[in-house]
Nucleic acid binder design. Structure first.
Lengths: 222, 222, 222, 222
DNA sequence: AATGAATGAGTTTTCATTCAT
DNA sequence: CATGAATGAAAACTCATTCAT
């Protein structure tokens, strides 16, 4: 009862996925500490010793869950990006993929975004690495945009490293915040494409202005 | 050993603050579950029973910590906002206050942003309420900006409610993301004012464009 | 709030009685372990240290409660017995007094009958002593009844010590059982005099038969 | 050390009985509060977590102990009653069974008679239910006795309900009082059959007189 | 491939009791 | 006469983890 399958003699690879499914779900909903190995074993429809046989410890199980979900998310984003399009179009398509994936895998997203950050460093590293990968991707796109703009004849200011980092971070943070909204399950949230468009609206113009050296500053009001 | 003060016979109100200090610190650094009441009592420089006498349970202690830090953050933002300035200036000053406070109280910020959201709905609610308050404030500022723009003679498109919500949410998310950076303690992060300026740069132009009906859309590339 | 009086500067003797009142009530209703010194102090309307100042420890407080209630019960029975009446009348009047007192002091009765027996011997001794006193009194009355009967010309068998003990114990047990009923507070229970009469009915005839050697035996059916 | 068996890998059903054995013993001798789960686990020869795994909580363990002992006592009495014998013989045989069982299971008896009644309503209820069952049985026997007497041609007064209840209660109380004696372990107490006979002697004649309308009354002395 | 039986180590929580004023 | 502040010691309960089959 409550178990995923109940069938006996399942090959290892399949069982492991069942366990990871159970882990992702349990960890996302209850948090690392509150999800007990008993819960997870029951959710996976197997006995506890089997979980240990395959995944060794709660720690490793959690790490495996994070890794799987992080890889899935990155893969989804990669697949969504329209490689040869202009930078803004690339960013938009990537964001759409991101929002679509998180909306379809809310437990996975919660695991990555909420739960994984709380634990003693060893877990966080996995997520930090993934986030860094994404931030790097965004950073590159900003760079590409600058180059495009230059190629188009517009004079483009060169942004400092810190500035770019800040922008990328802000963009990713904004995306995460919107993802929590779309993944929330509550009705009324926007679709993936709407969220992506909102974010582009929000971000792209500012970016353009910045590149033109027309940024906002406290002295220039209005 | 390791106690905060060592002074004996302290009035209740003072002791309670010491306990909350210890709680915020311990919870922020170790998480709710990993911070034991023993740790917290020792950090506060008192015995465990006294913690229970004054704060009743780990749950209530955690809640009290969250509430205190949430109130402090909101108060700091309120105090920083330049009430009668134009909307963008208000937003900027509020953001500056936000970044300054989180940078000065990194444990409090971690407690609110990371830990409180991880430990089940009941705790998260406290933070969600606070966040809603802030989002509401931002939403109002966006509305004010629209009105100012209209008063200034510029034609301003009316934004839909969902749009505004999305923008405010994105902005708050971006701010939170940057706050994690500034509060990180790692050197190299920007100052509060820099972070606020970066965010304004990032966000304000997009907002302006939007109000003029020049938002980005997937069809209009470049 | 909840305190008995709240008035300050009360002479010691009075305060002690207030504490004993609180103790009897709390112990009777919650049991020795479940009644906390905090509860009792609050019920008595004083601070905990004062309870310790006057009664030294929970143990001693409990003992003092038992002693007071035991003495009150024995005194009530003594006062009720019609000294110069025939044995059966004496027994009846004593029982009436017993039932009347327990009905009027249900907490005291519960304390003696239920709570005091459960604790590690040191408490039980007090109650055992009281009970022994009562059993002894009943035993004497049975003896007196035998002598009266002999004086009246009837042949009276001499009862063995064990027999008398058993009878007295049975009678006391029956009385206690009925006392739980009358002291129960539930309506429908009998009055003290009715209970005493029921018990006399139950016991006296058998006693008489026994003395005449006409006791019931398994072999004589019907 | 001190463990009951020392054998490892015992099936659950057996272990549970061992735990109940330990619980009955510990609770009877130390009381609910003073018997710690550590003690009980050690007595049962297992670790504490196993006790919790099988019996969930101290509360449930206590309840399970009470229920088992109550059922055992009732079963023993039922088995001892000579179904088709006359009422007095039935009563006697039931009492014999009662005394025999309590003497053989003094801890069980103490648990039921002393400990269970001390620990708040919820536990007491279990025992009250059992006692009610027994009182009911006795009440029926008294009724049967009246009918037998009538059938035998003797004029038999009809007893009021309250009267019968009172008598049954008194008899049960007397039996309990004697059971404390026989189960006491102190030498010198009577055997089960002696105790039963003493009680029959004590009670049966009075009952007979009552049925003939010759009850004792305060006005009729001697 | 799979599990029922079992536990070491640690956590939250409670309470009788005492100082210092 | 009276109390607010403080604690040592112990108890209930949980959980990741392992063994024997």
């Amino acid at each position: 009862m409550g178990g995923a399958t109940g069938s006996k003699r399942v090959p290892r690879a399949v069982r492991e996925q069942q366990m990871l499914d159970a882990g992702v779900r349990a960890f996302a909903r209850s948090g690392y500490q509150n999800a007990s190995m008993d819960d997870i074993a029951e959710l996976a429809g197997v006995s506890k010793p089997l979980v240990y046989l395959y995944l060794n410890s709660k720690d490793e199980l959690f790490t495996a869950c994070i890794r799987r979900e992080a890889a899935a998310l990155v893969t989804a984003i990669r697949a969504a990006v329209e490689r040869d399009a202009p930078a803004d179009r690339q960013l938009w398509s990537g964001l759409s993929g991101f929002f679509a994936h998180t909306a379809e895998h809310p437990d996975g997203w919660t695991l990555l975004h909420v739960q994984a950050r709380t634990q003693g460093r060893s877990f966080a590293r996995e997520v930090v690495a993934m986030r860094a990968e994404i931030v790097e991707f965004v950073t590159q796109l900003i760079g590409a945009a600058a180059r495009e703009r230059a190629r188009g004849g517009a004079r483009a200011r060169t942004l400092a490293g810190t500035e770019v980092s800040g922008l990328a971070l802000a963009l990713v943070g904004a995306a995460e915040s919107l993802a929590d909204w779309t993944a929330d399950g509550r009705a009324g949230g926007p679709s993936a494409k709407e969220a992506a468009a909102t974010l582009m609206n929000f971000a792209w113009a500012g970016l353009g202005n910045l590149l033109q050296g027309q940024g906002w500053s406290p002295e220039r009001v209005g």
